[in-house]
Structures are given as structure tokens and as C-alpha cells.
Amino acid sequence: EQIEAIAKFDYMGRSPRELSFKKGASLLLYHRASEDWWEGRHNGVDGLIPHQYIVVQD
């Protein structure tokens, strides 16, 4: 089940696996990879999304 999230802040990925996005961006989350990271998608690209930078939608 995919979960929708909105970016709270701009984020610049620090490795090829991390996604970069702007504040207000819509993100799709697949699952929680760790306490700090989600596996997800932004603009058709899959990668890691930092939990602290997003708001998960109910």
C-alpha cells in the first residue's frame, strides 16, 4: 500500500539512492526502510526519503 506524503523542507540527496525534492512536493512512500528513512518515489524516480523532511498524509 502506497502512502502519500508532502515535503516539509527542501532536501538535496547526499547519495545516488537519496531523492532530492522541494518543500511542498508530493511524495509516494512504499515502506519504512528504517527509523529515519522511507523507500519511496518522486517524479517517477525511486529512492530513499528522509522521515524528518516529510509529513505523512492520513
Rank of each mutant, 00 (worst) to 15 (best):
L27D: 00
P50A: 06
H31C: 06
I54M: 08
R17H: 08
D10V: 02
I6Q: 13
H42I: 05
R17G: 14
Y53V: 13
G44T: 13
R14I: 09
G24H: 06
Y30Q: 13
A33W: 08
E39Q: 13
H51T: 06
W38S: 02
K23Q: 11
K22N: 11
V45G: 09
D46F: 03
Y11R: 05
Q57R: 12
R32G: 02
L27E: 00
F21V: 03
Q2P: 06
I54E: 00
I6G: 03
M12Q: 12
I54C: 10
H31F: 11
A5C: 08
W37C: 13
Y53W: 08
I54Y: 03
I3A: 09
R14H: 03
I49R: 01
R41P: 00
P50G: 12
D58A: 07
H42N: 06
E18C: 04
E35L: 07
G44N: 07
V56A: 10
S15Y: 13
L48F: 08
V55Y: 15
E4W: 14
M12W: 14
K23I: 07
I49Q: 01
E4S: 15
Q2R: 13
F9S: 15
G40F: 00
G13I: 04
L27Q: 00
Y30A: 10
D58R: 04
R14A: 07
F9G: 11
E4G: 08
E4V: 07
E35W: 06
P50H: 06
G47L: 00
I6E: 15
V45I: 09
S15A: 09
E1V: 09
L27P: 00
I49H: 01
S34Q: 06
A5R: 02
I6V: 13
Q2V: 15
L29Q: 01
Y53R: 07
L28K: 06
Q57Y: 03
N43P: 01
F21Q: 01
Q57C: 11
H42P: 00
H31I: 05
A33M: 08
G47K: 01
P16C: 07
G44D: 11
L27F: 06
Y53L: 08
Q2W: 12
K22S: 09
W38I: 01
Q57L: 07
G44L: 11
Q57N: 09
F9T: 15
G24C: 04
Q57P: 13
S34V: 04
D36R: 08
D10I: 02
L19C: 14
G13N: 06
N43V: 07
K23M: 06
G47T: 02
I49S: 00
L28T: 13
I3W: 11
G40V: 00
K8E: 11
V45C: 03
R14M: 09
D58I: 03
W37T: 09
G40P: 00
E18H: 08
V45D: 08
R17Q: 14
A7I: 01
W37Q: 03
H42A: 12
N43M: 09
P16Q: 15
E39W: 09
M12C: 14
W38C: 02
V56T: 10
Y11C: 06
I6M: 11
L27C: 08
E1W: 02
Q2I: 06
G47M: 00
A7D: 00
G40C: 01
S34I: 02
E4L: 11
Q52W: 07
H51P: 05
P50D: 03
V55S: 12
E35V: 09
Q52I: 10
V45K: 06
L27K: 01
I49E: 00
D58S: 15
R41S: 13
G13T: 04
Y30R: 09
G13F: 02
I6P: 02
P50T: 01
D36E: 11
P50S: 06
G47P: 00
V55T: 13
R32A: 05
L28A: 07
D36N: 10
V55P: 02
Y11D: 01
Y30W: 10
L48N: 03
A33F: 13
K23A: 06
A5W: 02
H31T: 14
L29T: 01
D46A: 15
A5E: 02
N43Y: 11
H51G: 11
W37R: 03
E18L: 03
F21N: 00
V56N: 09
K23R: 09
D36M: 12
H42E: 07
D10C: 09
Y30H: 12
S20D: 06
W37N: 06
F9R: 11
S20Y: 02
I49F: 02
A25G: 09
L19W: 00
H42S: 12
V55Q: 06
D10T: 08
K8D: 07
Y30N: 09
F21D: 01
R14D: 06
E18W: 02
S34H: 05
W38R: 01
S15H: 10
I6L: 06
E35S: 10
Q2S: 13
A5Q: 01
I6Y: 10
S15D: 15
L28W: 06
P50L: 05
G40N: 01
Q57I: 15
L28H: 12
L27G: 00
A25C: 07
G24I: 00
D10M: 06
Y30M: 08
S26T: 04
K8F: 08
D36Q: 13
H42T: 06
W38E: 00
E39Y: 03
D10E: 11
A7T: 08
W38P: 01
I54A: 08
E4P: 03
K22F: 14
Y11M: 03
Y53M: 11
D58N: 12
S20A: 06
E39N: 11
F21T: 01
D58L: 11
Y11A: 02
H51Q: 14
E4Y: 07
V56I: 15
Y53I: 07
F21Y: 02
I6A: 05
L19H: 02
R32I: 04
D10Q: 09
I49W: 00
Y11K: 03
S15W: 04
V55G: 07
R17C: 11
A5I: 02
G40D: 00
E1D: 07
P16A: 14
P16L: 11
L27V: 09
F21I: 02
P50I: 02
P16M: 04
G13R: 09
E39S: 09
D36G: 11
R41D: 05
L19S: 02
N43I: 05
F21A: 00
Q52C: 07
Y30P: 01
A33N: 15
R41L: 08
P50R: 09
L19N: 06
G24K: 07
L48H: 06
A25P: 00
L29R: 01
W37D: 03
Y11I: 02
N43E: 07
V56K: 12
I54Q: 03
A5S: 09
L48E: 04
H42Q: 09
S34T: 05
E35M: 07
G24Y: 05
D58W: 04
M12L: 11
F9Y: 12
V45M: 06
V45L: 14
M12Y: 05
E18F: 09
I49C: 11
V45A: 14
V56M: 11
H51K: 11
S20L: 02
G24D: 15
E4T: 07
R14Y: 05
Y11G: 01
E4C: 12
L48G: 03
N43G: 13
I54F: 09
N43H: 13
M12V: 10
K22W: 09
G24W: 03
G40Q: 00
W38F: 03
H51L: 08
I49K: 00
E39H: 13
W38K: 01
Q2D: 15
G44V: 04
D10Y: 03
K22L: 11
L48I: 13
S26E: 15
E39A: 09
S20W: 04
E1A: 12
H42C: 14
A5M: 01
V45P: 02
S34A: 10
V55E: 14
H31W: 10
H51I: 04
I3R: 08
L19M: 05
S34D: 11
R17S: 14
Y11Q: 03
E39D: 08
